[in-house]
Design a binder for these strands. Structure first.
Lengths: 146, 146
DNA sequence: CATAGTAGACAAGTATCTTGACTATATAGA
DNA sequence: TCTATATAGTCAAGATACTTGTCTACTATG
């Protein structure tokens, strides 16, 4: 029996929810208990030498919301703000060692979850699934699902 | 080049986010502009003759949070509360006509998004994708991704 | 050098949850 | 039947993750 589009949609949403929960649990198991999913999305958007405004664009949220998340992560020792040598108004947001360790742990936790998927279907099915997801998920900001 | 597990994970999260955004836009296009994703999750959890407490279990959130969402949807004309003939403490939450129309619109909007996926890959790839998603997404509450 | 644009901070408000405490009703056991 | 316990729902307060609006300091353009 073929699944309806609606069933495919809800299964996709459940899968994403379970992935987020799995990453969250994996981070907690690795000692990062003060990180929430929203912080993970920020980490994922972070590349080198980004300003708050740049992160806001990458995340698709406002500068103010970004600044609040960055504030929290600076307080908790995951990020620091450095003056931008090329712009007196701006600060560059950089990962601390702890922040880098956290991103590594998050990637491992995500990998563990995806490996669990791998074990439930054939190698060929998983490869097709992965390929299809990459094909149909448009590039763009990685944001919370609301 | 095979994608890493991390890339598969992030693509899955982007896909889910785009699905939620698409449903949201589809609902707005059909005239339901005062519905938010959290309300959609509640609609999805709703079957006939459910109490607030039952919905809370189905959604995986507290009774209080459920009651607040139901309050909002009653105010906006999507739901009504009826006394439960079998339990003097309880109220049955039922869809109004408008609420039913909204769930239909949401399913159509979701279907439109999934059809967009369909068009980007072969029929066989989509069928495998759909099957794999159903296999690896564990049953359980359909909740927001954080 | 004047003007317009951008980075970020400050303040207030909204949506979606949480925990804790409470009332009213239901149910199960002595 | 009476009592103890569990459950449905409400009220209140607080946390998190956003929003809009406003403002200052600095940059860039012409």
């Amino acid at each position: 029996m073929a699944a309806t589009d609606w069933q495919t949609a809800t299964a996709t949403l459940r899968l994403a929810g379970q992935l987020v929960d799995g990453i969250q649990e994996g981070l907690a198991a690795r000692g990062f208990t003060d990180i929430r999913p929203a912080h993970g999305y920020l980490f994922a958007a972070l590349s080198t030498d980004m300003t708050t405004a740049g992160i806001a664009v990458a995340l698709g949220i406002t500068k103010q919301a970004t600044a609040q998340l960055v504030d929290t992560l600076v307080e908790r020792g995951y990020l620091s703000r450095q003056p931008d040598p090329r712009d007196g108004r701006a600060h560059l947001v950089v990962l601390t060692d702890r922040g880098y360790a956290c991103t590594q742990a998050a990637e491992q936790a995500a990998s563990d979850v995806v490996n669990g998927w791998h074990d439930q279907v054939s190698k060929a099915d998983f490869a097709r699934f992965s390929h299809t997801v990459h094909t149909i998920a448009k590039p763009g900001p990685l944001r919370p699902s609301w």
